[in-house]
Structures are given as structure tokens and as C-alpha cells.
Write a protein that binds this DNA or RNA. Sequence first.
DNA 1: TAAGCCGCGTTTTTT
DNA 2: ACGCGGCTTA
Length: 756
Amino acid sequence: MDYLSSLNEPQYEGVVNTEGPTMIIAGAGSGKTRVLTYRIAYLMQEKGVDPFNILSLTFTNKAAKEMRERIESVVGSNARNLWMGTFHSVFARILRAEAGKLGYPSNFTIYDTDDSKSLIRNIVKEYGLDDKVYKPNTVLSRISSAKNRLISWQEYTTNPIYKADDDTAMKPEMGMLYKAYSLRCKKADAMDFDDLLFNTNVLFRDHLDVLNKYQHRFRYVLVDEFQDTNVSQYLITKKLSAVNQNIAVVGDDAQSIYAFRGADIENILNFEKDFPDLKVIKLEQNYRSTQNIVNAANSVIGRNKGQLKKTVWTANNDGNQIELIKSVSDNEEGRFVASEIFEQKANRNYKNEDFAILYRTNSQSRSIEEALRKSGIAYRIYGGLSFYQRKEIKDLMGYLRFAINSNDEQSFRRIINLPKRGIGPTSVEKIVVAAFEHDIPLWEVLTNINSFLPGRAANAINDFVTLIKSFKIYVETKDAFETASHIAKNSGLLKELYADKTIEGLNRYENVQELLNAIKEFVDTPEVEDKSLNNFMQDIALLTDNDKENEETDVVTLMTIHSAKGLEFKNVFIVGMEEDLFPSQMMMSSRADLEEERRLFYVAITRAKENLYFSYALSRYRYGRLLNCEPSRFIEEVDPSYIRVNTKYGSREQKPSSLSPSRNAPEVGSNYARNLIANRNAAPKKPMSYHKPSDNFTPSDISNLKEGMKVEHPKFGFGKVHKMDVEGSNKKAKVIFESFGEKTLLLSFAKLRIVE
DNA sequence: TAAGCCGCGTTTTTT
DNA sequence: ACGCGGCTTA
């Protein structure tokens, strides 16, 4: 095993210490992936473990794929037989195999977030609830967090604790919605993302024989990015390794950035309790970055209170200081970044692939993208609107999904009147309600439509059913590509797209072709045995754009910091370093959240190997408005000795003072003209601007808040506290603002300053 | 049922 | 800015 000689002491421990529970705390750049790969290789080669008995769980498909490739380069093609993938994909696979035990068909549909939200929207409407109170996002995240803590709807609706919480939050119907949502998913033979984990827990809880089978199959369990697991995920891995106890988790609490998704740092503490003879290994030497970068990162993360003890150090060179680039606008920021890349490529022989531009939100990519394009620098954007989220793709996928699972309500709603066949929302609602009230599957209602919906619409439905039946025959007898192209043609989707000769229309047509190409590729892959559409569709909801192969490789990478986790680049630009953008305004409510933002900052810094840039702009477009920005507090949090101000890009431009429509005269009566006039005539709106970051706006102040106090809110201005609700952890205050009237503010979120 | 107009909200990250 | 949903009208 010559590769073992390249490891340092703790790394070596992490590789060869294969028996019993192990926790590897791995600092950024400490060779974590290396340890994981070698550990698996070691298991296979030295311990003779069958790859079939090794389960390795990651959070992104990309990470899984990368690791598989790295292992393959050590142990060869046998690596293909490893159980390796994201939690969601691995357990979706197991759930399909065991679906019958839970009362699902094995071809159940996986609802993506859009499906979930639109289902919630429908339910809220059906129950006549206020959709401003019960916003799909809010409802879904409440349901999601319940599921991630393994709280079923049955428990949620009977346990008064949750009811009390929801009452305080003025959302008393939440439990009812959770129930209705769950029943509707079940009825549609569908699981959402959280169900994949929740139902795996149910499966292992209620079917000990099944649990037993997988406990023995997975003799070794490895979990990457352990700090990002939620309770639901943790319990699955704990159960699976209960017999053999061979569980290895690898993580870094300093890089936990998915608390918003239910990730629970407590898991690290619980792990020590649940596996008392745990072996803890710390990887603290950073091989990735320069001294300067490592030190800067340490100076940032040191500000967080709750971190495990760990000292990340490096033996690498000092390297350059972080360069701070100031610009006047988001567009200028883009230009500066582009010209710096251009220059560095020329002077220091870097290639495009040596650069990454990281930002907090996907929407920030626009200005950067424009600048790169103008400079002729090849780039690739990760994330954003996924290929699979585009309307035309979702439409075709809707047909494919429905042909496979004809009880899938969301697909049904999407395609039933597409192209138009004279079936409106009224008929659709009647059908869905009929299925629910008679407690029969949707498809059964559709195939017997005459007894439920007499009249004109019934004929149209019957035609639709005949069409779908003909598709189902294809699904049963032909391969995925033949089926999909048949459906694309005969559904009328392709024809409709083809008729659209606008640029967007052509794009959409091409996108559909691209999907068909992907299916063709799937069918032509020799290793794929089952070439049915059914098989192709299995995990498609779990795929994201990031998982597609990229043709061009020498490109600058643009991505959010979240997607950059686990990656490294020689040169990294962290752009949009502005207060309220990064750290995000949304996150500024409590200290716990600020600490998560800080960890995110830490992740961003530690992606860089050689050179790091911070960039901020003094103004930025958002919602079509030019907003004033201030430098992020994070810039000041870095020990100043590691930063220098870049003077090359001293701004020559004037900061734009107002939004000036630089287009041709708008058509009279057009939406644009209307908005323009509306904006001009709008009340003397104060220019919407980011408020100054001020210690006066911290949550600590508001704990002293009392009725009758005069307060200031960064957005609503001055007001008087009318009423306080202090129930549970959700403290709320009703405030009457001078210019905005009465608002109820959740105090843990509100930025209030007590005036007097 | 379809088309057209109007008004509203956007909250950040991913499986 | 932009898209979506709701509402009105043909």
C-alpha cells in the first residue's frame, strides 16, 4: 500500500482504523477526502471487504461521483459496486426496493420542492385559508422541519406543544395542513425530499427484518460532511451501524452551513454519547492554502463561540495578502474581477480553471457573467435555475411522470390542459376532490370519469385518458428513448414548441431536445441493464444541474459559497461582500444565525489555495432598484494584517445616483410605461437603502422592550409598541408605526432599536 | 375557456 | 425587474 506512506499521522489513523466507531474532525484542506477514499480503498484491498458491504454517504451527487472516481483510480473498476451516493439517492433506492412494505408502489414519484409548494398552495386554497398567512414556503419549511425531526403528522396534530407554537405564530391550521399534505402525497404515490429520509426511518422502525438485512449488508458505513446531517439522517446511519458498529463520520463543525435545512450540530455531541468507545481523530494540518489564508480564516472562525477545539495550521508558504477590491456598482465589480482574471492569466500563467468567483446568492451571478462575457473569458455557472426546473422540461417530465405514475396529482395538474384541451381549473378541482372524497386513486376517477363528471369536459378527459393509456403501452414495452420521444411528439408538446419561433421559443425547443438526448445517452450506456423509462425516471428528481457533465473544462467557476463546499481553487474571489447581503439580511436575526453566516464565510475563504480577493460594491441592483450598500462587517472581522487594499482598481466612476431608464422610449400603455409612471408618481418614497449596520439593532436590546416604548425599525421607521406577546420562545410585539401602521413583529427576527 | 390587465411579492443557501 | 396569480372581460 504505497499510498499510505504519503499520509501524516492522524490521516493514517483515519485510514487504517477501520473497526469500531470513528469520528474524524477534519479541518478545511486537511485531506479529508483523501482519508475517506484511502479508507475505502484500504477496506477493499487490505481487509478484503466486498464493495457491496460498504455504504458511503455524501450530501451532493457531485461529491459522491468525485469520490467514486478517486477510489476507482486506486482500486480499479471494482469501485463501481460500492454503495455510494447522497442520503436521498441511496435511500430512495432502498425505499423503491421495499416500497410495498410501506404501502407505496415501487415506482412512486419524488416530488421536488416546486411540486411540494404547489400542492400546499392548492390545499391552502381548498381549505379557504389565507395564502398570505399560510405561504407555501413557510408551511413547507415547518412541515419539513417536523419531518426532519421525525415528527409525524399524527404526532404533530395530537401533541399540544406544536399546536401552541403554531397558535403563537398565528398559524393554528399548520397541523391540519401537515396532515392534508401528507395524505395527498401518499394518495399521489409520491414522496417529497424529506419523506425519503422520514420513510426510511419508518421502514427501519417497523420492519426489523428489513433493518436486519441492511445492517448486515452494510458492514461499514461512512458519512461525509457529518456536520450537515439532520436528526433523521443521523438516526438512519445510527441504526444501520448498530450491529457492526463500524461507522466512520467525517466532518468539520466549522463548516456547518446547512442548519437552515435541519442540519443539527447536536449530532456530533450525540454521536459521542451513542457510541461511547468512539475513536476521535483530528486532522489539523492544512495542505491546501497559504499561511496567510489559513491565518485569515482562523481569525474569522475564532469569533464564533460554539466551536470544537481544533487548531488548523499549515506548513505552506506565507503567500500573498488578501486583496480588497472596492467598486462603485455591481457592474463595475464585475469588470474589475474580469480584468483581474485577465491580468493574472497573462502575468502568472494561470488558466481559467484556476479561478472561482463565489457569491452569497445566485442572483449575483448576472453582473459578473456579463463582464466575463465581454472580456471573452470562458466561465461556467453552477446552480441557479436548474435545467430540470425549466418550464418546458417540467412539462415533458410531467407527461413522463404521469405515464409512469398516473396518480401523481402534481403532474396531472401540469399536463391535463397542456396543450389546451378545454379542461379548466374547475374540472380539475372536481376530479381531485372526487378522488379524495371517494378515497380512490386519481387514475381510477379518470378512467371512470363519466360517473363523476358528466358533461362536456368528460369527453375531453376520455380523450386524455386514451392518450395516456397509449403512452403507458410504450412505457411497458419500449425503451426510455423511444417512449420519451413518442410522448414528446404525440402529446403535442413538441409541436407547440416548434411553432414558437421566438428566440426563447427556439431555446425551449432545444432544451427539450437536450432532455431527449440525455435519455438517448442513458439508453446507449452499455452498463445500464434496465433501459426502461421507469428506470431513467427513478432518481431524476434528485439530480441537479450541477450533476451534468460539463463539456468545456478550462473555465472560470461561478457558484454560491454553499455549492463550493468541498472544492478548492488557486484563486478565489468572494464578491458582494456587503452588509445585509453577506452576511445575509435574513440571517441577521439571532447570533446563532450570524455564526452560521460566519462559518459560510470561513468556508469561502478556505476554498482558496494561493490568492484570495474580497470585493464589494457601493451600490447594487435588486428588484430593479439601485440600492446603497456598505462594506460587510466580515471584512473587518479578518485580522487586518492579512488584507491589503487593492489600489489598481480605484474607482473612477461616479456612483450612480438614480435609476435611469436607458432604453428606447417605452410603448405607450406597455407594462413598462405603466410601471415607470407608477414609480414616478409614487408617494415620496424614501430611497430604499440598506440601513446602517449598528449595534443598536441587536436582539439583546429588545429583550427589554415594553409596551408603550418608542422604537425605530430600519425599514418601517419610528413607531410605538402597542402590545407584547411573550409566549414560549416566540416573542412578538405589535408595533404601530407612524408611516406604515400596525405591524406584528417576531422579535427574534425584528431589528428594533429602542428610542425611548 | 382564453386572453388581457393589474397588483403584489421577491426574502438565501440544496437534496 | 419580473413572474405569477387573481380578476375582468369577450
